[in-house]
C-alpha cells in the first residue's frame, strides 16, 4: 500500500476530499447531501492520509483530538436549537436570516448549524475509530 505514488498523491487527494465534503455539507440543505455524508467523506480523507503518511502526521495535521472534534459537533448541534428561546418559540424551531453580499442572497439557518454539528460528530467519531485501527496495524 505504501508506494511512492500513493504517498505523493495522498495529501492532494485528502485535501480535495475535504473540500468536496464541505461542498456536500452545504449542498445538503436543498439537495441530496448533508452533514452525515459530508462527515463520512471528510473522515475517509483523514483515513487515506493516515494510511499513506502515518497516523502521527494526521494527528498533527488536525491539531485537536478527533474525540474533541466530535464533542464540539454535539455542542454546536445542541446550541443550534437555542436561538428560538428569545423568540418565544419551542426548542429546535428553525430561525433564519437573509444576507445580501456580493450581489447574491445568502440564507443562514439554524438547521445549517445543526448540520455542521452532525458533520463534526461524524468526522470526529469515525476518524478516531479509523485512526485507532490504523495505529494498531502499524504496531
Amino acid at each position: 500500500m505504501n508506494t511512492i505514488i500513493f504517498r505523493t498523491i495522498a495529501p492532494y487527494l485528502a485535501a480535495l476530499m475535504i473540500l468536496f465534503s464541505i461542498f456536500v455539507l452545504l449542498r445538503g440543505h436543498n439537495e441530496p447531501g448533508g452533514g452525515f455524508i459530508g462527515g463520512l467523506i471528510a473522515a475517509s480523507a483523514l483515513a487515506i492520509y493516515g494510511i499513506a503518511c502515518g497516523v502521527t502526521s494526521v494527528r498533527r495535521a488536525i491539531r485537536v483530538h478527533p474525540m474533541s472534534l466530535a464533542a464540539f459537533g454535539l455542542f454546536i448541534a445542541a446550541l443550534a436549537g437555542l436561538p428560538s428561546l428569545v423568540l418565544k418559540q419551542s426548542y429546535m424551531t428553525t430561525q433564519f436570516v437573509e444576507l445580501h453580499a456580493f450581489g447574491t442572497q445568502i440564507d443562514l439557518l439554524t438547521p445549517m448549524l445543526f448540520d455542521l454539528g452532525v458533520y463534526f460528530v461524524v468526522v470526529g467519531a469515525i476518524s478516531s475509530i479509523a485512526l485507532a485501527l490504523e495505529e494498531r496495524e502499524s504496531d
Binding site: M67, S68, A70, A71, F72, L74, F75, A78, L79
Partner: peptide
C-alpha cells in the same frame, strides 16, 4: 447535560 457533557469531553 449535553452542553456539560460535550464541554467536559473537549
Amino acid at each position: 447535560t449535553i452542553l456539560g457533557g460535550t464541554i467536559a469531553l473537549m
